[in-house]
């Protein structure tokens, strides 16, 4: 975990000084690849909800009388499908309008 040079904290029962922990985490942060290489989750949410939205909306358009009766007379597939579709498209739109910034640049989005 810590640098190979021997430190007083190696004595059993003592605690490593906070400075050492901060240095180690800072070093790992510098090597971290997440910020640069992790994909944008908005793409997945947008994609999945668009697909789900289309599937469920179609199910709503083809709804039988029995299904409508079961759902208290509401075409719940249609409404849920349209709402999911809208959410999916909103995420894709958000990503298009404000793409993720590379970590070094001054970010203006979340």
């Amino acid at each position: 975990m810590s640098a190979p040079h021997s430190e007083p904290h190696s004595a059993p029962g003592s605690t490593p000084p906070p400075a050492e922990l901060r240095e180690e985490v800072t070093r790992l942060e510098a090597k971290s690849a997440t910020a640069a290489r992790l994909f944008d989750i908005r793409r997945i949410i947008g994609g999945l909800f668009t697909v789900y939205g289309v599937i469920v909306t179609v199910a709503g358009l083809l709804a039988s009388d029995a299904e409508l009766r079961k759902a208290q007379g509401i075409n719940i597939n249609l409404w849920t499908g349209l709402a999911m579709l809208a959410l999916g498209l909103l995420f894709l739109l958000w990503m298009r309008l404000r793409p993720a910034q590379p970590p070094a640049a001054p970010p203006e989005t979340d």
Binding site: L28, S32, T34, L38, P103
Partner: peptide, 19 residues
């Protein structure tokens, strides 16, 4: 897809403190 972003233990355990 997240695999390629894991280079250090900090990436694996804490997402590199970068989300």
């Amino acid at each position: 897809a997240a695999r390629r972003s894991v280079r250090t233990s900090l990436d694996f355990f804490l997402s590199g403190r970068s989300l």
